[in-house]
Design a protein around this nucleic acid. Structure first.
Length: 490
RNA sequence: GGUUCCUUGGCCGAGUGGCUUAGGCACUGGUCUGCAAAACCAGGUACGGCGGUUCGAAUCCGCCAGGAACCUCCA
């Protein structure tokens, strides 16, 4: 009995049975990266979490449209009035065109996501490519009376919104508390209220990224792109909206307010938030400067890293924790993950050698059900992995001949392992291994060749020839050159 | 200060009322091995503190201690 998918909905703060708006189809929108820096471990978490979700939904025979944006405009550095566009700031710093920066970091992001075996979303829209759509949303909000223009900028009127719709339903914040506790920022004279947020910002003279509009030459506000692009590609209301917990407030709260005014309904039915990756108990993030980039993980080039960690180790490390828990970075934990993954990988390889018999001690149906239930229960990948390790134990016992399995069950067992390890968890074990063995191969061959050279120096021709002939039998060609021996395949 | 949340064995990390020995890593013992390594098998340790609800709590409630995220861009 396969149980229904349940997901934890931040809106209700509980697990809910998943019911798609349109039967058989799922619209999924996830907040992607702001491309002004190298992708770090924190970026890997939502990418892998929602990759897992979309892989599982596909396995459960849903047709998924997964939209993940690239933020390349509009996020301000400090506050609304004195901030600079993050992308523009970096561009000035490095004397590059803003779009050059965007291009570079977008490609970096893609490269590293690919290494982590994160599938590309169905659509990856850029904020800068949807200025017109964003302006339309602003017009709609202005027409409905929930925004006002001030000195070339347009602001969302939070207090007015709160009179008709509760503001803060996602984050659990009360507007009274926000009024009392919101810090007074400098230069807020344009805004009627400190809670109001920008929909359109007039660009200062030195601001490079700007677009014309009826209000001013400027750029869209912080939260607008997700409202505009999710509406364009998924409709006024779609199934699941995902992102990091740090985006819950104000980003997603503002998104709800904007879309609710624009379309008269909350944009997404389910809101999912992955927790943070921490380092020394603190959030790993750009602003704290305590992040380790994925490149540094893969090469080991960082003072906090004892060694390099493969992309699949990183992926497995993240999947070993539930997405709603914080996950603390640590060398011990990473090395434990690496070894565990290796054990899983060996079992995957060795299970091909299992010989079926007439009887079976293995309950593959139960295994299959347990795996499905685990992931259907709010993407409980740690439980799934625990079941898979139970299967590893079974596989090893089968190889030892301690228990037996019939042909049908064996086929099913292999199928379950491939589906859950490779298709759903997205662990690409073989490619990782072959890369690794390729690099090791050279070392091994060098060792053999050195032994042969030694033998030759000792005039031990029998041994030298034996090494050469045996290697030739295995398909290696030994080439004796002036600078020593080398080898080639075939 | 406000909002939300966390505290599990040597480490990481699941579990939300009654046998889950969760799982991984480490550790100990065994098998294998000329020896070793690897591999495999087996085994132990836990629920921040105090009080309450309950026949029964790691799991529910209260208080205390410690920690985190958000309240400003952030995955």
């Amino acid at each position: 009995m396969e149980q229904k998918l349940h997901i934890y909905n931040t809106l209700s703060r509980q697990k809910e049975a998943f019911e798609p708006i349109t039967p058989g189809r799922v619209g999924l929108y996830v907040c992607g990266p702001t491309v002004y820096g190298d992708p770090h471990l924190g970026h890997a978490r939502p990418a892998i979490t929602f990759d897992l979700l979309s892989r599982f939904l596909s396995y459960a025979r849903y047709k998924v449209r997964y939209v993940r944006n690239i933020t390349d405009v509009g996020h301000l550095e400090n506050d609304a009035d004195e901030g600079e566009d993050k992308i523009a700031k970096k561009a000035k710093l490095e004397e590059l065109e803003p779009m050059e920066v965007v291009q570079y970091y977008t490609e970096r992001y893609h490269d590293y996501m690919k290494m982590l075996n994160v599938k590309s979303p169905s659509i990856e829209p850029r904020a800068s490519g949807h200025i017109i759509e964003q302006i339309q949303v602003i017009k709609s909000i202005l027409e409905k009376g929930y925004a006002y223009e001030s000195n070339g900028s347009v602001y969302f009127n939070v207090k007015k919104y709160n009179e008709d719709h509760p503001y803060g339903i996602l984050s659990g914040r009360k507007i009274e508390d926000l009024i009392n506790n919101t810090r007074e920022l400098d230069g807020q004279s344009e805004k009627r209220d400190s809670l109001d947020f920008a929909l359109w910002k007039k660009a200062s003279p030195e601001h490079i990224m700007r677009w014309p509009s009826e209000w001013s030459d400027g750029f869209p506000g912080w939260h607008l792109e997700c409202s505009a692009m999710s509406k364009k590609y998924l409709g006024e209301q779609f199934d699941i909206h995902g992102g990091g917990m740090d985006l819950l407030f104000p980003h997603h709260e503002c998104e709800i307010a904007q879309s609710t005014v624009d379309n008269g309904k909350i944009p997404a039915k389910y809101w999912m938030h992955n927790n943070m990756i921490t380092i020394g108990g603190q959030k790993m993030g750009k602003s704290l400067g305590n992040f380790i980039t994925l490149e540094q993980f893969f090469t080991g080039q960082h003072e906090k890293l004892e060694k390099e960690y493969s992309p699949m180790t990183i992926r497995f490390f993240i999947l070993q924790a539930h997405y709603r828990s914080t996950l603390d970075f640590g060398n011990d934990a990473l090395q434990a993950a690496e070894k565990g993954l290796n054990r899983l990988s060996e079992a995957m390889e060795n299970m091909e050698n299992i010989v079926a018999s007439n009887t079976s001690d293995v309950d593959v149906i139960s295994l299959k059900d347990k795996c499905y239930s685990a992931i259907a229960d709010d993407l409980n990948s740690p439980i799934l992995i625990a079941h898979l390790f139970d299967a590893v134990k079974t596989i090893n016992s089968l190889l030892d001949g301690k228990i037996s399995i019939d042909e049908d069950s064996l086929v099913e067992l292999k199928n379950i392992m491939h589906v859950y390890v490779e298709d759903i968890l997205g662990l690409s074990l073989n490619s990782d291994k072959s890369e690794d063995s390729n690099s090791k191969m050279d070392d091994v061959m060098q060792l053999l060749l050195n032994m042969r050279t030694e033998a030759k120096q000792n005039k031990d021709w029998a041994t030298a020839d034996k090494i050469r002939d045996e290697l030739q039998n295995l398909g290696f060609v030994i080439k004796d050159g002036a600078e020593g021996a080398s080898w080639e395949l075939k």
